[in-house]
């Protein structure tokens, strides 16, 4: 509610000296701008006010998608770190110095934390190219780009899971062309309120009494497993 209220404040009272084109920010987020319009909007994004607005809009989107996402704090340094990492990786690597292990930044949330990964997927959904980060991608995705793997620092858990799943071979592998289509079309599902609702409907009944039944279901239900 706070986020939505603040948005309306910005819209109602743009600073007099620097009126910000909120429509352009919103359209850029939704991927509706092309060519010159997109370039102009990207120009806008150099102002801190526009970036604040961008963050706020994404927060609103997150809250509307799933209540769990609202609980995540905003990490102002994320964009800077992503840009720095991309620049670093763009350079050809001549020799890798056997440097000491980089110091861990324990102040930011772990990349393999369940809720954090949700947020990564939801928040970056507008950057279609970054969709490979986040929670398990199954089947047909091939090896993950190095960038994605490094962004998910220490994400041995999820990656291990994905590999394990990909290697399970059913007894009768389907040679159906539909199968190929499905695997090729497979990507990450962005978590939203609708998927949450289906997960909840499933979890209400999913655990048999022999495995803890109701207690297990009620603990899982709504939790970002």
């Amino acid at each position: 509610m706070t986020a939505i209220a603040s948005v309306s404040v910005i819209i109602m009272n743009p600073p007099n000296n620097q009126p910000l084109d909120l429509q352009a920010v919103s359209a850029l987020m939704d991927g509706q701008l092309r060519d010159a319009d997109a370039a102009a909007a990207m120009g806008l994004m150099s102002s801190s006010q526009a970036r604040e607005c961008w963050q706020l809009y994404h927060l609103v989107g997150d809250v509307l998608r799933s209540a769990d996402l609202a609980a995540c704090g905003h990490d102002p340094g994320l964009a800077t770190r992503v840009v720095a990492r991309i620049q670093q990786e763009a350079r050809p690597v001549v020799a890798v110095a056997p440097a000491a292990a980089p110091a861990r930044d324990v102040t930011r949330p772990a990349a393999n934390d369940g809720v954090f990964r949700w947020r990564m997927v939801a928040g970056l959904a507008s950057f279609a190219a970054v969709a490979a980060i986040g929670w398990g991608l199954l089947g047909g995705m091939g090896p993950r780009p190095d960038g994605a793997a490094q962004l998910a620092q220490g994400a041995a858990g999820p990656r291990g899971t994905v590999q394990a799943l990909a290697s399970v071979t059913p007894p009768q592998p389907a040679a159906d062309p539909d199968d190929i289509h499905l695997v090729q079309g497979a990507g990450a599902i962005v978590r939203d309120a609708r998927l949450d609702e289906l997960l909840r409907a499933h979890r209400q009944i999913s655990a048999p009494p022999a495995l803890g039944g109701f207690v297990l279901n009620a603990t899982f239900e709504g939790a970002g497993r």
């Binding site: 398990g136 199954l138 599902i189 998927l195 997960l199």
Partner: peptide, 24 residues
């Protein structure tokens, strides 16, 4: 779960893994 397709809400096919729970 079966429901009528709403193009805007169901953009693309995909898969997800959350612990033991899988979705497709």
């Amino acid at each position: 779960f079966m429901q009528p397709l709403e193009a805007a809400q169901h953009p693309r096919e995909g898969a997800a893994s959350m612990g033991a729970t899988q979705a497709l």
